[in-house]
């Protein structure tokens, strides 16, 4: 067991993740931008928590309406 634990890779510290929107200095997340929205939804169509994606609170609040609008227009799924 001890050896196994040593072999397993350690998970990166989630606090060290950087917000990808902050790097690009995004001021508005567009609902028409499918390629950028897609990775922030999981297999079932739910919005990924920012703990896992590393998005800052400011951009997560922009992301939510964008994804909801994209869902209404049929670009993203409500539920898979």
């Amino acid at each position: 067991m001890f050896n196994k634990n040593q072999q397993q890779q350690r998970r990166a510290d989630p606090r060290l993740k950087k917000c990808p929107f902050c790097d690009r200095e995004v001021e508005y997340v567009d609902y028409k931008d499918y390629p950028t929205l897609k990775p922030y939804t999981d297999y079932f169509g739910n919005i990924r928590q920012r703990y896992y994606t590393g998005v800052c609170l400011r951009h997560q609040k922009m992301l939510k309406p964008a994804i909801e609008r994209a869902r209404f227009m049929g670009m993203l799924a409500y539920r898979k």
Binding site: Y28, D30, Y31, K32, D33, Y34, P35, R69, F72, G74
Partner: peptide, 25 residues
């Protein structure tokens, strides 16, 4: 018209042609 949506874009919004962007992606 199946769906329509009216949105007020923010100040200094730049028009992006998402049709091209999507194909490139």
């Amino acid at each position: 018209v199946l769906r329509h949506m009216v949105v007020k874009p923010p100040k200094d919004y730049q028009v992006v042609e998402f049709s091209k962007k999507y194909e490139e992606w």
